Lab assay of single mutants.
Amino acid sequence: SASLEDVKTAVLGLLVILQTKLYTLPASHATRVYEMLVSHIQLHYKHSYTLPIASSIRLQAFDFLLLLRADSLHRLGLPNKDGVVRFSPYCVCDYMEPERGSEKKTSGPLSPPTGPPGPAPAGPAVRLGSVPYSLLFRVLLQCLKQESDWKVLKLVLGRLPESLRYKVLIFTSPCSVDQLCSALCSMLSGPKTLERLRGAPEGF
Rank of each mutant, 00 (worst) to 15 (best):
S163E: 05
V85W: 15
L164N: 00
S1N: 12
Q19R: 14
F137C: 03
A54G: 04
A183N: 07
L188W: 08
S39T: 13
L140N: 01
E99R: 13
C143M: 04
V152E: 02
V177C: 07
G203S: 07
E147Q: 00
K105V: 14
V156A: 03
Q146T: 09
G77W: 03
S1C: 09
E147D: 04
I53M: 08
Q42V: 09
L76Y: 06
K145F: 07
L144T: 02
K81H: 12
S3T: 13
V131Y: 03
S186C: 08
V85T: 13
R127T: 15
R69F: 02
C143R: 01
R58D: 00
T50C: 10
G101T: 14
L164A: 02
Y34C: 03
G83V: 03
P201H: 09
C185F: 09
S88P: 02
V168N: 09
T114D: 14
V177G: 02
A2C: 11
L22A: 05
S55L: 06
L141A: 04
Y34F: 14
K192V: 14
L67S: 11
L51E: 05
G13T: 00
K192H: 13
S107P: 11
Q179A: 11
P52Q: 07
E195I: 08
C93T: 07
G115Y: 14
A183E: 14
E147I: 00
V92E: 04
Y90N: 06
K81P: 10
D6W: 01
S107K: 12
L78N: 04
P117S: 05
R127H: 14
H44R: 00
K8G: 09
V38Q: 02
V84P: 08
V84L: 10
A10Y: 00
R58H: 00
Y45D: 00
P116S: 13
V7L: 03
M36L: 13
P174C: 06
G199S: 09
L135N: 11
L15G: 13
D149A: 04
I57Y: 01
P79C: 06
F204N: 03
E97C: 09
P117G: 10
A27Q: 08
N80E: 07
H44A: 01
L153G: 00
Y90G: 05
C93H: 02
S72Q: 09
D6L: 01
R138D: 15
M96A: 15
F137K: 01
K192A: 15
Y34T: 03
